[in-house]
């Protein structure tokens, strides 16, 4: 257990070293909420859109920071740090588990204060609901980290990895209910709303809104959302760990 904690600690410290990146993400978050969110909420015909949008943007930043573990792993492979990690007295499995936990935990540590600001703005109507949503979002962050590790270990070309992550980032946010309620996605294009039904960001944002008491535009019940998040977490954490562990053997990352 202690060995896993060392790996987690290292990943958290590495993340906190990206000070400029973290500062810029926080600045982006503030601009999104205090400018785009405020102005767009006066532009749309959706009641309480500011609260809706603020909750959605919180999920976006949780996703984008959790995904960052994939870039770290990729850089390690490029700079020969994997060899160093393999020389440590830690088993492959523990290393893989630690990376997955570290990837999710660090994004949650970073997003928690930002989430606190959003909740101060929009309020919490039911603390118990929120607690359940909070725990589920924790699992969501782990799931995203696992997904990112899986992609990073599955693609060997740096260009392909960056392109895929860029395209995925652009599409996964926009094809979810992070920014707009599903009813409007349905009206715009049925395909968009169908894709949103399978998008983990949809369920994560619905859960946060449910937890904060913004229930006007929920399309899934909280139990469905929790179950989907648990499945997403289980699937990608498992795949991420297995994939990472296997790739580490015999120079598979090279």
């Amino acid at each position: 257990m202690r060995e896993i904690l060392y790996v987690v600690e290292r990943d958290v410290k590495m993340f906190l070293n990206h000070k400029i990146l973290l500062f810029m993400r926080a600045l982006w978050f503030v601009a999104q909420i205090s400018l785009f969110g405020l102005i767009a909420s006066r532009m749309v015909v959706v009641p309480n859109y500011f609260e809706y949008y603020a909750a959605g943007i919180t999920i976006t930043i949780l996703y984008s920071t959790a995904v960052f573990i994939g870039y770290d792993i990729y850089e390690e492979a490029e700079h020969g740090i994997v060899e160093y990690l393999l020389s440590l007295p830690i088993s492959r499995k523990k290393l893989a588990i630690g990376r997955s936990i570290g990837g999710g935990l660090r994004s949650f540590i970073y997003v928690a204060p930002l989430m606190g600001i959003v909740l101060a703005l929009i309020g919490i109507r039911n603390p118990i609901n929120f607690l359940l949503a909070f725990v589920s979002l924790f699992l969501f962050a782990f799931g995203v980290a696992g997904m990112s590790i899986t992609i990073a270990m599955g693609i060997k070309s740096a260009d392909k990895f960056d392109i895929l992550m860029g395209a995925l980032d652009a599409l996964i946010v926009r094809l979810s209910t992070v920014m707009y309620p599903k009813v409007f996605m349905q009206q715009a294009n049925l395909l968009y709303s169908e894709i949103a039904n399978f998008n983990p960001l949809t369920f994560a944002s619905e859960l946060l809104r449910w937890g904060a008491g913004i229930e006007q535009y929920l399309t899934f019940g909280p139990i469905t959302s929790v179950l989907v998040i648990i499945s997403f977490f289980s699937l990608f954490t498992l795949i991420g760990i297995i994939f990472y562990e296997r790739r580490l053997e015999g120079g598979g990352w090279q």
Binding site: V44, Y49, D162, G166, A167, R174, Y180, F184
Partner: peptide, 20 residues
């Protein structure tokens, strides 16, 4: 990344916002 972002903004985000 930029092309994906621009096209997604235009053909997904803007189309949905049009309904709102």
């Amino acid at each position: 990344g930029m092309i994906s972002m621009n096209l997604a903004d235009l053909f997904i985000m803007a189309l949905v916002y049009t309904k709102m």
